[in-house]
Design a binder for these strands. Structure first.
Length: 626
DNA sequence: TTAGGGTTAG
């Protein structure tokens, strides 16, 4: 390439008016990274010799600027051109599409149509990508009609882009119908449809398509892996990753896609292995991979390793997203003061916090009970940091006030919000009314939630539990009838733990595990031991209207207890136990685990829906504030 | 030319 380039440059010195020579050189420069400076010099040379660029040369220069990210120069070329061609528009549309600027792509497309320039099979894929990025179904449909008018609907590139557009706009059936119509498909057509089904949560359909594909590439494998991971089917994601390694070569995107599966399963050892794999394959230097690795360690409860990754990152890679990950890591462990100092360190390093930084920071304050500090940051968000407060930030404040027992103040805050309150706000209020056993506020919050998300069974169950606690059995009956009527089921409690490299899953009351007898035996002996240490079971956490003894029996087989019992039975004394639960840990289990940690001299980490609980010597890191 | 990606309250 270098040789070809120098010989072309030599010929150019002899023929400074030869547009074909310019065109060839620019094409080479477009494909060569970091060659923008040379490209600019060449463009200047054209001016100097007053060579008027023909339509295709102008388009090529624009493509050169676009591909190196200098969209401004590319746009200037268009604005100063007296008669821009459709080729020049195509270059600009491509450039803006690659940088994910859908609004600009669409306005360029409109300008093109306004000048009666014909879009072609090169234009539509990028315009459709913009519709998918927005995403906007109405605009996508309009563009689709343009494709039909030009007879390009079933072109492989255009067709695949249409399948992708419909899938991203939530119309996967439409995407599939189009897919069936296409005679010529390529891997991207299949991949686009698979991604569409995965986005809808139709994991099985995606799996069948993947099986039926005539050929697969890295993107097909990665799309399946990330689809499984995002739909919470962590074991399928991991299994596929192992299969993939035999048949195709994972790249950095694959690593980024598989790590959330480890994080979801809280499989720390597996995560470490994948980290090690990425390192040996040279895939760990990409900043996105480093952030994903940090996130994995944080979600698996290893704050130390997360922090170590962060400290090893080169300064230039410490982006806002990287800082946000570390702020979130502290927050999830309830280390509010550490969240705050990480946030301040980020600001000192000259970076501007974004909306995610504030969500992380405020949740840290909330978990640590830093009420005044959290309120101050919230008040400063817009005036000092120019970040608009959104739903998630309001929800954090409701949570901050509610958790601290200031329920009335939280209610006033929720009612006086500048934006329309959504389920997250009332969900936070309902949760804290539960912790502080304030039935009055709970009813207000629950009623708002029943309007906003009538099909979320969790809200009915939570209120019903609160009625049960205060002995209001009539109300409990009413709510349970409502649940039945709507055909809703309480989502079953489920906990899992990685023991000796395998993830073991337990449901509440589960007796299906091979070691079930041993586990239940262990749990049966536990209450007596605990009572010896001063334990009183809290039966308020059981839903049913049954006798006290039966209630106690129910509590004894909560999924987190099963997982912990299994862990203690199958690991060496002194090994740290890590358990993850799909719901919030219940109050009785929280107390019980404190005792277990003391009786069996074990460190136990429980990650529930919201945060980490680190049990040691009869105490929990949350200080019973959660 | 199209298809896969990290950080986000309850």
């Amino acid at each position: 390439m270098q040789q070809e380039l120098s010989s072309l440059l030599r010929s150019l010195l002899q023929n400074p008016l030869d547009t074909i020579l310019y065109s060839s050189i620019i094409r080479i420069l477009t494909r060569t990274p970091n060659s923008l400076r040379h490209g600019r010099q060449l463009h200047a040379l054209l001016f100097l010799h007053a060579v008027s660029p023909d339509p295709s040369l102008a388009a090529r220069i624009a493509a050169m600027y676009s591909s190196s990210g200098d969209l401004h120069s590319a746009s200037l070329l268009l604005h100063h051109h007296p008669h821009p061609s459709h080729l020049l528009y195509n270059s600009l549309i491509r450039g803006h599409s690659l940088r994910r600027l859908p609004a600009q792509v669409l306005s360029l497309f409109n300008a093109m149509l306004g000048r009666s320039l014909p879009p072609d099979h090169f234009t539509f894929p990028f315009v459709l990508k913009a519709c998918a990025d927005l995403p906007s179904l109405p605009i996508g449909c309009t563009v689709h009609s343009q494709c039909l008018r030009r007879g390009l609907e079933l072109d492989v590139y255009v067709g695949s882009s249409l399948v992708n557009m419909y899938a991203k706009c939530g119309e996967v059936r439409f995407a599939h119908r189009l897919f069936d119509k296409m005679r010529v498909r390529d891997m991207s057509t299949w991949n686009a449809l698979i991604v569409g089904y995965m986005m809808m949560g139709a994991v099985k359909v995606a799996g069948h398509l993947f099986d039926d594909m005539p050929k697969r590439n890295v993107i097909s494998w990665t799309a399946m892996i990330s689809g499984y991971a995002q739909n919470g089917v962590a074991d399928s994601a991991l299994q596929l990753f192992y299969e993939m390694r035999k048949r195709s070569k994972p790249n950095w995107v694959t690593i980024v896609s598989i790590l959330p599966a480890c994080a979801h399963a809280a499989a720390l050892d597996l995560g470490r292995m994948i980290h090690e794999y990425a390192r040996t394959m040279g895939l760990d230097s990409h900043p996105t991979v480093q952030i994903a690795i940090m996130g994995m360690y944080a979600k698996c409860g290893s704050l130390l390793e997360a922090r170590r990754c962060f400290d090893r990152m080169p300064e230039r890679d410490k982006t806002v997203a990287a800082w946000n990950t570390i702020i979130t890591a502290y927050a999830s462990q309830g280390l509010g003061a550490e969240s705050v100092s990480a946030f301040e360190a980020m600001v000192r390093s000259g970076l501007r916090p974004d909306a995610v930084s504030f969500t992380a920071l405020l949740s840290g304050c909330s978990r640590a009970g830093l009420v005044d500090q959290g309120m101050r940051y919230f008040d400063d968000m817009t005036p000092v940091y120019s970040v608009e407060a959104a739903h998630e930030h309001y929800a954090c404040i409701v949570d901050l006030l509610g958790r601290a027992g200031k329920l009335e103040r939280a209610l006033v805050f929720a009612n006086q919000m500048k934006i329309k309150s959504g389920p997250s706000i009332w969900g936070a209020l309902l949760a804290s009314s539960r912790s502080h056993r304030n039935l009055k506020v709970a009813q207000i919050a629950a009623n708002r939630l029943f309007e906003l998300e009538p099909d979320n069974s969790g809200n009915y169950v939570l209120l019903s539990n609160m009625y049960a606690e205060s002995g209001k059995w009539e109300e409990v009956k009413g709510l349970r009838a409502l649940l039945r009527e709507k055909g809703m089921k309480k989502s079953p409690g489920c906990s899992w733990s990685e023991i000796n490299g395998r993830v073991h899953t337990f449901f509440t009351g589960d007796k299906s595990h091979p070691q079930s007898n041993e586990i239940h035996g262990f749990l049966e002996d536990l209450p007596e031991k605990m009572k010896g240490e001063g334990y009183i079971p809290d039966t308020g956490f059981v839903l049913h209207d049954v006798s006290e003894e039966e209630k106690e029996g129910n509590l004894a087989t909560h999924s987190e207890k099963l997982a912990i019992a299994f862990g203690i039975l199958n690991t060496n004394p002194g090994a740290v136990l890590r358990v993850t639960k799909n719901l919030r840990i219940c109050g009785d289990c929280h107390t019980a685990v404190k005792f277990i940690s003391k009786i069996h001299h074990r460190e136990i980490m429980v990650r529930d829906l919201n945060r980490f609980h680190h049990f040691k010597d009869g105490l929990c890191s949350c200080g019973d504030y959660w």
